[in-house]
Design a protein around this nucleic acid. Structure first.
Lengths: 239, 239
DNA sequence: ATGGTGCTAACTGTCAACAATTGACAGCGA
DNA sequence: TCGCTGTCAATTGTTGACAGTTAGCACCAT
């Protein structure tokens, strides 16, 4: 009986496809591979020491997840959202997190609430220290925590996927929200409603909180986080 | 200059993977392949006259879409939602369609509204004729129409994917909603708010409309649309 | 110069064969 | 009878080779 090692699952017998998938996903999410980067199959294959089969399968999955954009017979690149796509995603995010908040509030334990407060306090500190990087990391955990607390697994997965697709743009766009302080305040207001057990109000506040950068993005093309070039062209991307 | 044929895209030069993907997706969505059905790679390959490569890639994509469940060295089956997963999906659907309605209302043209009314009337007729099949088809188009009218492409895709996963269960569960008449009435109430240009109210009504079967599903395990057997087991399903 | 044309190299799409794993079953022993 | 063990057929995982397509470039004609 050589029991399971300190691993999560039975015996850590990962398929090559799974390893490649995991690797590439991490590379993209961490922005080591930036949007628009070309993903050459043979280059990846030799680089990772596997054949093209597992690479292709992993790329296909990532395409279905939206992290990669495949154009048949041309190749794959790291997905680059247009401004419109980013706005669309933001809108969906608002709905998902609002739902999550509404569902999560009555389910939160005291420990959950305590942790949320801790994160909120940390964010406040980061805002005052003007440490944007740390702020965003905690911010992400704060939102993730609420979504997870909803107990809705599908919701959690969709949310994770959506935020993954939005990537770095999330941080860049959030910076024109009116400063970290305003954002920290929004979280505090949300937590107030959460503590009061007012799920509906918390959900509403969350929706408004997320809605802010949307409005900023909508009107002024001042920010060129996007380099729209060809509004034409047919791509696969998923379906 | 042999121009593009009456095709939608450049020259209709579909990849085998795409053809297989399309075929399998259709088979699943139409329930010709029912949940739990095993998807043997060699069987599919010989059946479709291609090698296993494209089959595997298509199955991988379908797994990422949630239509197929792959367990790493075991094989693929058509995804079978548990009761909890179905309830979760229903909850997400509520949020998505509520958002879609809120966004769509101010964007609707007169033609859009006319078509919605037409569908609503048709549903009313089907309800009175007790034609559930036709009712559900129109119902689906009604909801799709609203989501499409939101102009949010990501929202549309997620919605389509979600409803695809829910599959036949949607119809079965909707039948214990209180009859087709009640459902038709709900659509009529929504359209009232739509006509009045009251997006917020329409969104709220839509949320309530979708919420109904959720409550029915939640409490009584009376309906055994699901055959839960092993609440354990580790599966891949997507991530 | 300039616009079109035909090569060419690089890349993706597909296939068939090989390797590894799994689940089932027969057979053995208690 | 029951449980264990070893073998086997079936199925998935992976590979390397081949075929087809694409994009870029040099070249030629105008």
């Amino acid at each position: 009986m050589t029991g399971t090692p300190p691993d999560g699952r039975p015996v850590r017998n990962l398929t090559l496809r799974e390893q490649v998938l995991q690797h590439l996903r991490e590379e993209i999410l961490s922005s080591r591979l930036e949007p628009g980067a070309e993903l050459n199959e043979v280059a990846l294959a030799t680089s990772l020491g596997v054949s093209r089969g597992p690479i292709r399968e992993a790329l296909g999955r990532l395409a279905a997840e939206g992290l990669v954009t495949i154009t048949p017979r041309r190749g794959a690149i790291v997905t680059k959202l247009t401004k419109q796509e980013f706005i669309d995603a933001y809108q969906v995010r608002e709905a998902l997190e609002s739902l999550a908040t509404r569902v999560a509030v009555p389910r939160l334990t005291d420990e959950d609430r305590a942790e949320l407060h801790r994160m909120s306090d940390d964010m406040r500190r980061c805002a005052e220290a003007d440490d944007a990087t740390a702020f965003f990391e905690i911010n992400r955990r704060f939102h993730d925590k609420l979504v997870a607390a909803s107990g809705n697994r599908r919701l959690f997965e969709l949310h994770e996927q959506l935020l993954g697709q939005m990537g770095r743009l999330l941080q860049k766009s959030a910076q024109l929200r009116g400063g970290l302080g305003e954002s920290a305040a929004a979280h505090e207001r949300i937590l107030e409603a959460v503590d009061a057990g007012d799920a509906e109000r918390a959900a509403q506040l969350m929706a408004e909180h997320i809605e802010v950068p949307q409005r900023v993005l909508d009107a002024p093309e001042a920010l060129d986080l996007f380099d729209e070039a060809d509004p034409s062209s047919e791509i696969e991307k998923a379906s």
